[in-house]
Design a protein around this nucleic acid. Structure first.
Length: 470
RNA sequence: GGUGGGUUGGCCGAGAGGCGAGGCAACGGACUGCAAAUCCGUUUACACGGGUUCAAAUCCCGUACCCACCUCCA
């Protein structure tokens, strides 16, 4: 089966037919950097990271562009609140986003342009839209530039809405709009806004509206037609609808497929800064291992809502640790080896709209086989199974042996010291067991357990691990 | 009011006309000095009411509830 994906625009599963054979171009909406990322934001990064890894594994050369929208109303407000330049706020949060990518093992995008870096391209695009009769400078002299939705008959095609059915935005001031649904391509400079947040245009000084930056970046970095446009489902309207309208109205083909990931809910509603029910990535990884968090985010289907709970997160960690336990024990017996081939069932599941849950079911079956070989001590056959398991995990960004998860610093040195100390105790325990002095043997084990170290007896002798860490 | 998605066993989570995905938990067995880990086995399902069909969790109609979007949002 060739790779196919649920396309939001046609509301159907569609085959991926790349513009250029062998290459896949993907644009997905990054963040408006008004705050540090929460785990809902990073769910989206994990989803697109898995997509990228799978396409690359399938032999495609993938170019992936994600924007950083580094100017908007809220960033300006925060700058004022915090008594520092708006760009300091944006930059700090951009760095927090990068830290979150890294801690969860997401490969950075190929290019990650900033909205403020494509202002000339946005101006050109507005000129094109005005020439073609799809945009206009506000008649009130505000310097705003609007897209004229009534001039574009297919407006609403992405979210399957008709303009006349749309609820008129309550908070939309009439301003200089011809229609209440017209959206701002560009916002004229207002008294009180910092000078640094404005750029010269043929219509006066001003700053980008939301939406236009993505159209400008997508065509600049991927061309006028590209393969997949993605983002969170909450961006489908108005953001993606507006991007599609302005790019098509400017004469571009734009995205072939639209891929939207479902939300991560907390306490019944979408995790969102405005609701205040957020869990920051930087906080969660203090109490949950990043690889366990990644498994939690990656394990459910990308189009299913994930209802966050501590219980389901803990359960995901347990499930992953079973997988990881196999990998570590197998690697101890037969060596880590190299990545192998994924199973045919795994490939079929991933090709079918990125069906990670089905892919994980086949992975579990492979691990079951591997555990039997481990019990038999068949290190030769085990090597092949381990290579396959690691390769499947690698597609999900979850190979426990990947250097991604090495926690640098002094860890390696400490591990040697601990191994030597624990090794001595295990020898004592083994001597006691040999003379059937089980009271002493158990006392040693209890002592280690109390220190957070788990002991497993295997045919190759005792192995130890830090609790919850395999 | 409009648009899209959902409701599956104690829990998480797939599937989309016939064959009980998978995981976690529980219980039984094997292994073990005892454990742990692992393996084998067992148990509990498709929101509700109609309909179509030889056959429905799956298709159709209706009802209830939930989520998202229509306003800043991954």
């Amino acid at each position: 089966m060739a790779f196919q994906l649920y396309d939001t625009a046609s509301r159907q599963i569609q085959p991926l037919v790349p513009v250029q054979p062998g290459r896949v171009s993907i644009y997905h909406c990054g963040l408006t950097v008004q705050g540090p990322p929460h785990i809902g934001h990073i769910r989206k990064e994990v989803v697109f990271d898995v997509l990228r890894r799978w396409l690359e594994r399938s032999g495609f050369t993938v170019t992936i562009v994600a924007n950083v929208t580094d100017i908007d109303d809220k960033i300006l407000v925060k700058g004022v609140e915090q008594g520092r330049p708006w760009f300091a706020v944006a930059y700090e949060n951009e760095r927090a986003l990068h830290a979150a990518y890294e801690v969860l093992g997401c490969i950075p995008p190929t290019y990650e342009p900033r909205a403020t870096g494509v202002v000339p391209e946005m101006i050109e695009m507005m000129q094109t839209l005005i020439e073609r009769g799809h945009a206009y400078a506000a008649e009130d002299g505000s310097g705003d530039v609007y897209f004229d939705v009534r001039s574009w008959p297919s407006y609403g095609e992405l979210s399957n809405q008709r303009i006349d059915d749309m609820q008129a935005a309550e908070d939309a001031p009439p301003e200089g709009k011809r229609d209440a649904r017209d959206f701002a391509l560009w916002k004229g400079h207002k008294a009180g806004d910092p000078e640094s947040a404005s750029w010269p245009t043929p219509w006066g000084r001003g700053r980008p509206g939301w939406h236009l930056e993505c159209s400008a970046m997508a065509s600049k970095f991927l061309g006028e037609e590209f393969d997949i446009h993605g983002g969170g489902l909450d961006l489908r309207f108005p953001h993606h609808e507006n991007e599609l309208a302005q790019s098509r109205a400017a004469g571009q083909q734009f995205a072939r497929l639209w891929m939207h990931n479902a939300m991560l809910n907390l306490a019944g509603s979408k995790m969102s800064k405005s609701v205040g029910n957020t869990l920051l990535v930087s906080e969660v990884v203090k109490r949950v291992r990043p690889i366990d968090l990644r498994y939690y985010l990656a394990a459910s289907h990308y189009r299913s809502i994930v209802e966050f709970s501590e219980e389901s997160l803990a359960e995901a960690a347990t499930a992953f640790q079973r997988i990881e336990g196999f990998v570590r024990r197998a690697a101890e017996l037969s060596g880590p080896g190299d990545l192998g081939e994924v199973s045919a069932a795994f490939a079929e599941a991933m090709d079918d709209d990125l069906s990670v849950p089905a892919a994980l079911a086949t992975l579990q079956a492979t691990i079951g086989e591997g555990n039997k070989l481990l019990g038999d001590g068949d290190s030769e056959a085990l090597r092949g199974v381990l290579a396959s398991v690691r390769s499947m995990l690698d597609v999900l960004g979850l190979d426990p042996l990947s250097p991604t998860w090495d926690r640098g610093g002094d860890d390696a040195a400490y591990a040697q010291v601990i191994d030597s100390l624990v090794g001595g105790l295990l020898e004592q325990r083994q001597e006691a067991r040999a003379t059937k002095d089980f009271a002493t043997a158990d006392r040693v084990r209890d002592q280690l357990t109390a220190a957070g170290i788990e002991i497993e007896d295997t045919p190759q002798g005792a192995r130890w691990s830090v609790k919850g860490d395999n």
